[in-house]
Write a protein that binds this DNA or RNA. Structure first.
Length: 632
RNA sequence: GGUCCCGUAGCUCAGCUGGAUAGAGCAACGCCCUUCUAAGGCGAAGGUCAAAGGUUCGAAUCCUUUCGGGAUCACCA
């Protein structure tokens, strides 16, 4: 209707106003709640351009619209606003359309170009944590939303399975794992630990030993023992030590960090781990076997977590597969003059003409860096899916700069599709105690968190749920649905771009703007419908009260909400819409009788409305990756 | 220091392509289960939209400056 009115005014602008009006001038929006009416046309833009009074203009438009649209019941001009009242008939027809359409809100599947959505993207040296969960839920939901917008979508993850950080866990495991009776080092099998947790443990172990070694080196230096250290290092240490004289606390800390870095660079652990990386890139069989084994432990661990949260991928990319391609492209780019080589053999790109810095793309020892792999991965993906119309990278906003540079490099390399790549940048998750820091042990482990929310849901549902006659597996499933649903909704309802606070208590809350609140409304409607033996059918015209009209109005907005969520890549748009819908339905539910209504037409309409609300809840929660129970 | 993001009720967040009196939830207070699931509803309370200028008929929304918070500027990923 909004669109029709807008088109009508544009087409008849000459006869109405005596001049053409631009499409931007015709602003039709929902009427504010406090004012009576359904749609509002803003008269201000015309007043200004045509130099006529709002009353005069409003009257002209009023007459024209009323005679044109039979769905319009009444129009009043209030100040600079023209408020349009639509008839009950119009709303009842709208409801009937919604009721009849099984895919209400969504575009035709696969009617739009292929998009790739990358999310999760874990490192294989650390277990998943709360930050990953925001990433995963967000990426998954955005993929679903894009599908609902008609796109074909490939969900993918990039597995960060190479690089020096992986070698750290490997080295630490080889060196520090205790041997059992059979002379075996620790494995998931002989410890019962989840694979990702075991590998993560050795990553931490590396760091501990690494720091300890650096500390002992500094200790030796401070005692004046410089045996086996090169002259430049010793000179640098002395220079830094002297620089400490008379500095304030902050500057002092900076210098000590530099000394620490200097010492870290002299550790045998770092030397060995670098050696391991070079061996790995040279496909050394022993190193490769160790790498494959430990990575498989991690994947098995991740799979358990993914399965528990109902997330899957169509395709996974491994950096170990793409970094070589990246290196090749760098060599090519070097020949083309996109990159340049420094004296030490390292390869760089100069982005200063774009207002950025110089960026390293290949180390002096010839090994790949993060950027090298990402170049290779992007190109590899377009090789796999030449028809693809874009890649959406779901990655935290601390990497805004990285992606800016990546897309620019791809463009400079001459890939026209670089313009279609975009970074879905999301904010960090803070804890009430502050930032999550793995080094300080303040990360929230994903598996622990999931277990916790499910446990809480179990407790609450046993207390107040309607579980009579449910089988035990069905109950388990319900507890999972509620716990996970609450967690997903909690993380998704906030604008992705914004940094958010994770409050453990609020995340398992059941009242207010929460997943369970919405799930509950759905369950209640299902109960209502089954009691009424409801089945869809035609609805007779009947008068509508304010509560009913409000709910139907919101229902009609669902398709545009999906479109907006797709455009802005924001599940939060959907979540907030759904909350509004559910709130207004609950208000209706509490004020208006349904089953005991004696007027059959009214009862039918109210049931159809309830069924439509349930349908939209189910559909939009699915787009958030949240299941919705029929009873709870 | 350069670049980017953020600042709305005690707390967590909506609202931001400029439009009518800035909205929710939580917390705290008062009501409503012999009508359908009270994980619900209703009411009252809570605001210098960080501050100051500017643009406009009209600014939480756009521009500038200041203040406050954060990210980033690695031969880490």
């Amino acid at each position: 209707m909004e669109h029709a009115i807008k088109q009508f005014l544009l087409h008849h602008s000459l006869t109405l106003f005596g001049t053409d009006v631009s499409s931007g001038m015709v602003q039709v929006q929902r009427t504010k709640k406090e004012v009576s009416g359904d749609l509002t046309l803003l008269l201000f833009p015309f007043v200004k351009a045509l130099k006529a009074s709002p009353q005069e203009l409003g009257e002209k438009i009023r007459v024209a619209l009323i005679s044109e649209f039979k769905g319009i019941q009444q129009i009043e001009v209030l100040g600079g606003f023209l408020n349009i009242h639509l008839s009950s008939e119009y709303w009842v027809n709208a409801l009937e359309d919604i009721q009849k359409n099984p895919n209400f809100g969504s575009e035709k599947p696969e009617s739009k170009p292929l998009l790739m959505v990358e999310f999760a993207s874990p490192n294989t040296n650390k277990p998943l944590h709360l930050g990953h969960l925001r990433n995963i839920f967000l990426g998954y939901s955005v993929a679903e939303i894009l599908k609902a917008n008609g796109h074909k979508v490939i969900k993918t993850q990039i597995i960060n399975d190479r690089g020096i950080h992986i070698c750290k866990s490997m080295l630490a495991w080889e060196r520090f794992s205790p041997l059992n009776d059979q002379g075996e080092r620790e494995t998931p099998q002989n410890t019962g630990l989840k694979g990702d947790k075991l590998v993560g443990k050795y990553y931490v172990e590396f760091d501990r030993n690494f720091n300890a070694e650096a500390k002992s080196i500094i200790g030796r230096w401070e005692e004046g023992n410089f045996e086996s250290f090169s002259d430049p290092v010793v000179a640098e240490f002395k220079r830094l030590t002297e620089a400490k004289e008379g500095k304030d606390e902050k500057a002092l800390a900076g210098i000590e960090d530099k000394i620490k870095d200097l010492a870290k660079n002299q550790t045998t652990l770092l030397r060995d781990v670098k050696e391991m990386l070079v061996k790995w890139e040279a496909r050394d069989p022993q190193v490769y076997l160790l790498w494959t084994t430990m990575n498989n432990w991690v994947y098995q661990g991740f799979d358990v977590t993914y399965k528990s949260i109902g997330v899957d991928f169509e395709k996974s990319y491994y950096e170990s597969d793409t970094f070589l391609l990246g290196k090749d492209i760098v060599v090519e780019g070097l020949q083309k003059g996109v990159f340049y080589k420094k004296e030490d053999g390292s390869v760089w790109i100069d982005l200063t003409d774009s207002g950025l810095d110089e960026k390293l793309v290949l180390r002096s020892d010839g090994t790949a860096v993060y950027m090298t792999q990402d170049i290779g991965t992007a190109v590899d993906r377009y090789k796999d899916y030449p028809e693809m119309n874009g890649i959406i990278y779901t990655v935290g906003n601390e990497q805004d700069y990285h992606f800016k540079v990546l897309f620019l490099i791809l463009e400079k390399l001459g890939y026209s599709w670089a313009a279609n790549c975009s970074h879905l940048s999301y904010g960090m998750v803070d804890l009430p105690s502050g930032k999550m820091k793995s080094r300080e042990g303040t990360v929230v482990d994903a598996d622990d968190l999931i277990a916790e929310v499910v446990e809480k849901a179990t407790e609450m549902t046993r207390e107040r749920g309607h579980l009579e006659g449910m089988t035990d597996p069905a109950k388990e499933h319900l507890f999972n649905t509620i716990g996970l649903g609450g967690l997903k909704y909690y993380l998704l309802k906030v604008d992705p771009k914004k940094r958010m606070l994770f409050n453990p208590e609020e995340s398992i809350e059941l009242n207010g703007n929460t997943g369970p609140f919405i799930q509950y409304t759905h369950a209640r409607i299902c109960s209502l419908l089954s009691k009424a033996n409801y089945s869809a059918g035609t609805i007779q015209e009947c008068p509508l009260n304010d509560e009913e009209k409000e709910v139907i109005k919101l229902l009609t907005e669902y398709p545009s909400v999906i479109a907006e969520a797709g455009q802005t890549l924001s599940p939060a748009v959907l979540a907030n819409y759904m909350y509004e819908l559910v709130k207004s339905y609950n208000h209706f539910y509490q004020t208006v009788p349904i089953l005991i209504e004696t007027d059959e037409n009214l009862k039918r309409m109210r049931l159809a409305m309830s069924a439509s609300v349930a349908k939209v809840i189910l559909s939009s929660m699915k787009l958030l990756g949240v299941e919705v129970p029929e009873r709870m």
